[in-house]
Design a protein around this nucleic acid. Sequence first.
DNA 1: GTCTATATCTTGATAGAC
DNA 2: GTCTATCAAGATATAGAC
Lengths: 210, 210
Amino acid sequence: MPIVSVTTSSASLAELTGRDRILQEAAELFLTKGYGDTSLRDIASAVGIQPASIYHHFSSKEVLFTEILRIGIEHTTEAFDRTNADLNADAPPGIALLAHVEAHLTALFDHGPYTAANIVVFPVAPDAVKAAVVPIRDAYEQRWDTLLRELATSGQLDPDLDVRMARRIVLGSINSTIEWFNPTDSQKDAQSVTDLAKVMTDLVWKGIGA
Amino acid sequence: MPIVSVTTSSASLAELTGRDRILQEAAELFLTKGYGDTSLRDIASAVGIQPASIYHHFSSKEVLFTEILRIGIEHTTEAFDRTNADLNADAPPGIALLAHVEAHLTALFDHGPYTAANIVVFPVAPDAVKAAVVPIRDAYEQRWDTLLRELATSGQLDPDLDVRMARRIVLGSINSTIEWFNPTDSQKDAQSVTDLAKVMTDLVWKGIGA
DNA sequence: GTCTATATCTTGATAGAC
DNA sequence: GTCTATCAAGATATAGAC
């Protein structure tokens, strides 16, 4: 159960309550223009309120940004845990990997700017924001380490790779799709996130060679 | 032959002439703190000059940033072409891929912030900067399309992937190493960029499965 | 090619009414 | 919970001396 309920994916933009609308619009702007080039005036204007009103919900711009990143990780972590719960205990490792890649990519493309901001904007975030977010990121990455360790101990992973490096490669590779994949306009090879998950799982599992 | 000679990798920081020192320090700051949160004051202070002096070399902050990104792509493109020239005409496709992955990664980690900024900061760059840089990015990507098309026509590429998608996956995957690989501190699996290139070529070619 | 000085604008944030 | 009004600091950029 999440500590804070997030209504971003269920409700349409106009229906969102004040705080959530600020988060949504801010996340979109941060993702598009970056943190430093997005002013509180920009955000307020997008929401349709005055800049000062933001401070009723968030004590500073950094706190607002931190909360956006936190929500994104929360979505992703919950998707991982849900997938684990759904997986049959003796599912073959290939299936488990595919399921988690799909869960990760779905979280990435379904919760719009919250999850994407963790990939695109986090690397250049202010130090205070990074420091606040790193622990929650770590908790998510450890879930992947556990998953990949199981693959390694059952001899399914390239023995030359250690688990941490494998995780970085896998997550880095699937995260990089954020730069070009758009689930709304259908593409030749991957029309849906499910298609994309299949393609990317094939990449990390078998490579792109024929 | 490059239009503008760039002395960034050959000369040490203190030896750089005015213009190049500004570029170097600015690139480092943009990469660390992002574009919007890096002021011309920050850059001037890092170089040891006054903010106004920057305008003798660059007409605006956006022009300075654009030039940084351009230099990064120039390095990478030249590395690609050099690799092509060095490759034996009848080298096996696996070798050609490995050589180009290594060339790309070497450019990425050897020219410090210039190339890295193209991955980390470009996605949130101002529209004017993006517009100026996109054409040169495209020219580089087309080189990869050509390379991968050759692999595809010789039946070495997964036939379910089209060339554009394969290129995005390959470049996205190897570029994502910028987030965690550090050539200066040796790591367990990849101590050098050459090691990293081997690991990443294996990923895109054969996957990480055992 | 770098400086001092400064113009002009925008920024994050606060105070206090409603 | 949103508003008006405003502050103090920092932003990009310019003018002109050396």
